[in-house]
Amino acid sequence: MNLFSDIVVRSPWLYRINAGSCNGCDVELATTACIPRYDVERLGCRYCGSPRHADIVLITGPLTLRVRDKVLRVWQEIPEPKVTVAVGICPISGGVFRGGHSIEGPIDRYIPVDVNVPGCPPRPQSIMEGVLLAKKIWLDRLNGIAPGHKEERHVSLP
């Protein structure tokens, strides 16, 4: 059984959450995932349409006030062990929107992020690098090498 799991590397599925982004990172994610030029399926990853099938979640956008609860709800629906990737500078730090009245980010205030891919937007190769890093963390978590999320950092929502 051990030999089997050594040979068969499992394939994470990707899911994308738009937390109020300007489309830049989303378009680049679509480009990375869907077209043969970048072909993220080479890495064993595949885009899926439902959060319940997802293993790696890519979040874009600065997390606006209006979308916050919905993002958190969708994120919670993703089964453990999940790996969260923040794509673009907005989810990481707020980017150029920092200080806006409806910006609730950076996203790691609410969600434990594992990998950051800064850029505005990052080029597809850079996103792939982030996915590779996330895949490694995900496999380590599956094999029990890396710890999962330390604690669930949710705010109590009204």
Binding site: I92, D108, P112, V113, D114, V115, N116, V117, P118, G119, P122, R123, Q125, S126, I127, E129, G130, L132, L133, I137
Partner: peptide, 14 residues
């Protein structure tokens, strides 16, 4: 240099 992906531990060193 576009190799920007990093783990959360490195966030504040980036």
């Amino acid at each position: 240099d576009w190799h920007n992906a990093h783990t959360q531990e490195d966030k504040y060193d980036w």
